[in-house]
Every structure is written in C-alpha cells, then in structure tokens.
Amino acid sequence: MPPEGALLESRAMRVEYLGRVDALDKIKALVMLPDGIHIRTEDISRYFEVSTDVIRQVTARHRAELAESGMRVLRGSELRKFHSDMVSLWGGRYAESYPQAATQLTLHTRRAVLNIAMLLRDSDIARCVRTYLLDAEEGWREGYAALDRRVTDVESCLGGVGVALQELGPVLNRMSYRLDSLDRRLDATNQVVAAISNRLCEMSDRIDRVDAKVDHVVQQVGELRRGRKRR
C-alpha cells in the first residue's frame, strides 16, 4: 500500500481515486446545498475543521486541478439564477436564512471535495479520508488476488476436464458408430415387420373371402337338402 502522503504529492494518483466520493461520508457526514450537488467553501471548511482561508489557499494553489474535478465560480446572472434556484429548493420559512454571496460564489462538487481531501495537509479529517481510500484499495487488491487464485484453480480443473474429454473422444466416436449401425439395423427390422404386417393383412382379406365362399356353399347345400325333402 502506498503511503498516505503519496496522495499529497502525486496528481496522477489523486485522479485514480476521484471516483471514490463515498469515502467522504464514511469519515464524516458531508452537508450539501439544497440541490444535493454543490457545496460552498464555508461548508467545506466546517467539514475538514479548518478555516476558510486554508481552503481558499488550497483552491488557489490547485485551481486548474480542482476545476477539472467540478469546482466553479458563479458571477452575475449565473449567480442570481443559482440563488433563485436554491431559495426555491430551500423553501418556506428557511428561504430568508439562505446565505447569498454578494458578487461571486465558489461551488464544489463531491469530487472536488474529495480532491481537496487529497491535497489538504493540516486536517485530521482529510488525513482520515486519505487513509480510508488507501486501506480500501488494499482490501480490494487482496480481494482481487483471492479471486484471481480461485479463477486459476478453476482453469486448472477445466484443463483436467479438457484432457479427459480428449481421451473420451475416440470412445465416443466408436459409440456413435455403433449407434448408427444399430439405427440402420433397426430401420431394416422395421421394414421387415412392415412387410410382414402387410402380408398378414392380405392373408386376412383372403381368409375373409374364403369364409364368405364357404358360407355361400353351406347355404346352397342347405337349400338343396330342403328341396329333396319336399319331394
């Protein structure tokens, strides 16, 4: 795990951690403006428990970096519209107590606040945030390493399965050939059975015709006998 001070010195490392804004609320509740997106310099100083001058010094030294993280300065009509939106969101009896900047207002996003936490040296809260980020990263790396080991074990098992399947290949081919042969023999047997069935049907028809002829002959013989008796 890199030392906690590494985040103070390396901008590239800070960029890697900017997505972990959840670390802020893990250390201390971060109170945002009514829109839930922005926070003022005064509120940031209360979060880190330092003066507003300290926060302003950090933002002045790293203005370009913090601007990329979401910090911006409102003036003129843009500032008036923002105040109007905030008062509307603040609502009711709280609207009059909403603090409004006179000429300009510096706003920060959560990413910008996290960026400040990785730049602010003289704050125990900022130090805790940096430590949390690095500890969490170490935990993730250990988890990834364990997962990688499990994947390797599974791949080894699958490799054994692959060898077994290769050995079974010839056996399966022979079984497939024998099954095909049995299918052909079964088809031939079915054809023979069908032919026998047809012959039996034909014989049944002939027997029926013979029975009919016998019945006719018996009937004629009977009539001849009755005729003789009358004479």
Score class of each variant (00 low, 15 high):
residue 1 M to Y: 06
residue 2 P to H: 11
residue 2 P to N: 10
residue 4 E to F: 06
residue 6 A to Y: 11
residue 9 E to G: 06
residue 9 E to N: 10
residue 10 S to K: 10
residue 14 R to L: 03
residue 18 L to C: 09
residue 19 G to F: 13
residue 22 D to N: 07
residue 24 L to Q: 02
residue 27 I to G: 01
residue 28 K to N: 03
residue 29 A to G: 04
residue 32 M to P: 04
residue 33 L to C: 09
residue 33 L to A: 12
residue 33 L to W: 02
residue 37 I to D: 10
residue 39 I to A: 04
residue 39 I to T: 11
residue 40 R to Q: 03
residue 40 R to K: 05
residue 44 I to C: 08
residue 46 R to S: 10
residue 46 R to A: 12
residue 46 R to Y: 02
residue 50 V to Q: 04
residue 50 V to E: 09
residue 51 S to V: 06
residue 51 S to N: 09
residue 52 T to V: 14
residue 52 T to E: 13
residue 53 D to L: 15
residue 53 D to C: 10
residue 55 I to V: 15
residue 56 R to A: 06
residue 59 T to P: 01
residue 59 T to M: 06
residue 61 R to V: 00
residue 62 H to R: 15
residue 64 A to M: 09
residue 65 E to V: 05
residue 66 L to R: 00
residue 68 E to F: 01
residue 69 S to L: 14
residue 70 G to T: 04
residue 73 V to I: 12
residue 74 L to V: 07
residue 76 G to S: 01
residue 83 H to R: 06
residue 84 S to V: 08
residue 87 V to I: 15
residue 88 S to I: 03
residue 89 L to M: 11
residue 90 W to P: 00
residue 95 A to H: 01
residue 95 A to L: 02
residue 98 Y to K: 15
residue 98 Y to R: 12
residue 100 Q to C: 13
residue 105 L to F: 02
residue 106 T to K: 01
residue 106 T to N: 03
residue 107 L to S: 02
residue 110 R to E: 03
residue 111 R to E: 14
residue 113 V to N: 04
residue 119 L to G: 00
residue 122 D to S: 10
residue 123 S to L: 09
residue 123 S to G: 05
residue 130 R to N: 05
residue 130 R to Y: 00
residue 132 Y to L: 07
residue 132 Y to G: 01
residue 134 L to N: 12
residue 134 L to K: 14
residue 134 L to Y: 06
residue 140 W to D: 05
residue 142 E to G: 11
residue 142 E to C: 08
residue 143 G to Q: 15
residue 143 G to S: 09
residue 143 G to C: 10
residue 145 A to M: 04
residue 149 R to G: 15
residue 150 R to K: 15
residue 150 R to F: 09
residue 152 T to I: 05
residue 155 E to F: 06
residue 155 E to C: 07
residue 156 S to L: 06
residue 157 C to S: 13
residue 157 C to G: 11
residue 159 G to Y: 09
residue 159 G to Q: 14
residue 164 A to K: 08
residue 164 A to G: 02
residue 164 A to I: 07
residue 164 A to Y: 02
residue 165 L to Q: 05
residue 168 L to M: 14
residue 171 V to H: 11
residue 172 L to M: 03
residue 172 L to V: 05
residue 173 N to W: 05
residue 175 M to W: 04
residue 176 S to Q: 11
residue 178 R to D: 03
residue 182 L to S: 02
residue 183 D to L: 12
residue 187 D to R: 07
residue 190 N to H: 08
residue 190 N to Y: 02
residue 192 V to H: 14
residue 192 V to L: 14
residue 192 V to D: 12
residue 195 A to Y: 05
residue 196 I to A: 11
residue 196 I to V: 09
residue 198 N to T: 12
residue 198 N to D: 11
residue 199 R to H: 13
residue 200 L to M: 10
residue 200 L to D: 11
residue 201 C to P: 00
residue 204 S to E: 14
residue 206 R to M: 10
residue 207 I to P: 09
residue 210 V to R: 10
residue 210 V to K: 10
residue 212 A to C: 10
residue 213 K to R: 15
residue 214 V to S: 03
residue 216 H to N: 15
residue 219 Q to A: 15
residue 220 Q to F: 06
residue 220 Q to W: 05
residue 221 V to A: 12
residue 223 E to F: 08
residue 226 R to V: 08
residue 227 G to N: 07
residue 229 K to N: 11
residue 229 K to H: 11
residue 229 K to M: 07
residue 230 R to N: 03
residue 231 R to W: 09
